[in-house]
Nucleic acid binder design. Structure first.
Lengths: 219, 219
DNA sequence: CGCCTGTTTGAGAAGGCTCAACGGACGTGG
DNA sequence: CCACGTCCGTTGAGCCTTCTCAAACAGGCG
């Protein structure tokens, strides 16, 4: 967030369920997410969709797009969103004149990759219950770090379609798995607020380790 | 590779099947892969392993590790390997004094993430045959770009264990899927060399798009 | 020769998928 | 005010892809 404050320029507001960057699009801007939720995704030709990771306030939007000629993925909003715009050519200016900010950009990129890594482990090697647990607890921890959670409660703007596409499961099976976790009392969800009765138990089920992403001292 | 040449300092050689960075390890160095193959991976407590991506010559090794206090993943060699060492504190020096190289580091990080993105799509949304095809064709294309492939032939140092751990499949099913692809004449494999009879057909099966990773002009 | 690593194959089980239908909440238009 | 469409969540039946478990085989090496 400190990073955002420094580079802040124009704000842009967008509604929920909108594509910020379409797949294959040649976007000319990089953004930073100031408020709201978004997600990155990829699609196959026949429509199968995989959500790569969710973006929360403070995350960089479109770093890849600003490095390559065409984005390899799409980005869409989950809620209303406020973006801080960063014109692409300014990225290079940052590298030239503000090495500490350039370092922050790289750091944010590395952190995002680390999240995608974790998602790949989840999707590749966990069963349905573990996957759902890992997703919920992962988002909970990120909300917690941002001060958006309070004793087990946090905003949860995903629908079951998003969950299944993030976890590589079918919609029907996602629903049944959620029903199971709800039945054994792991959570309740209403009005877009998730309420975790026992985060520790959910964390065990999701096999999530504590990754803190502490910045290293630079020297 | 141009990047490597500029930062080249000490060379290190390692044998095959060795951990460069163990999970959770606090590594003090970043490397760049000069020759040979390696891979990044994550493990669950009970031993299930997911390979995140494969590293070929020119790839950065341990960028995440150099940004965070503890690596969130392990890195191991697949073949004999030559590394160029880059002490961690020198990373900061690069950002301070060589913005173009700093940009290259960020670019390489973004490209690696883009590969992990693709792997997540593959593992999350493709069936076994598509996954194997996507893996083989993906490695083929990377070898091609490095000049390591010649009319459908390229080095393939993975065993079936690596393939199954990269694709989120069981060893047995990986074997049967490979047998199927071999039976219908998609490839032959002997002595660590993969020979693709019909790369186009394999590419269709793997639903792999052409991602070229062209660097954007900086301004 | 025996052992180890890596590959192959089969039988049976099961987790997850597909297809189909239904219900509730909400918004829109007549 | 009601009829209708749409979005989202729910549920059931049956199938099938993939997994687990087990055993056997091939090659390399001490």
């Amino acid at each position: 967030m400190a990073f955002i404050q420094k580079v802040k320029s124009a704000h842009v507001s967008l509604g929920a369920g909108i594509d910020i960057v379409a797949p294959e699009q040649d976007s000319d801007e990089m953004y930073t997410l100031f408020s709201g939720w978004a997600f990155r995704y990829k699609e196959l030709a026949d429509g199968r969709r995989q959500i790569l990771n969710f973006l929360l306030p403070g995350d960089l939007v479109g770093l890849q797009a600003s490095m390559f000629n065409a984005a390899q993925h799409g980005i869409a909003t989950l809620t209303e969103v406020q973006l801080c715009v960063l014109p692409r050519r300014k990225v290079w200016t940052i590298f030239e004149t503000m090495p500490d900010l350039a370092f922050d950009i790289t750091w944010l990129g590395a952190r995002e990759e680390s999240i995608v890594d974790q998602n790949l482990l989840t999707v590749g090697r966990m069963n349905a219950r573990e996957r759902v647990a890992a997703l919920i607890i992962g988002l909970y921890k990120r909300c917690n770090a941002l001060g958006l959670a309070k004793d087990g409660m946090f905003p949860f703007p995903l629908n079951q379609h998003h969950i299944s596409d993030a976890l590589g499961l079918s919609l029907a099976h996602t629903n049944k798995t959620l029903a199971y976790l709800r039945r054994i009392g792991m959570f309740t969800l209403e009005g877009g607020m998730m309420d975790l009765a026992n985060p520790r138990a959910l964390q065990r089920m999701g096999q999530v380790f504590d990754a803190e992403f502490q910045a290293r001292p630079l020297i």
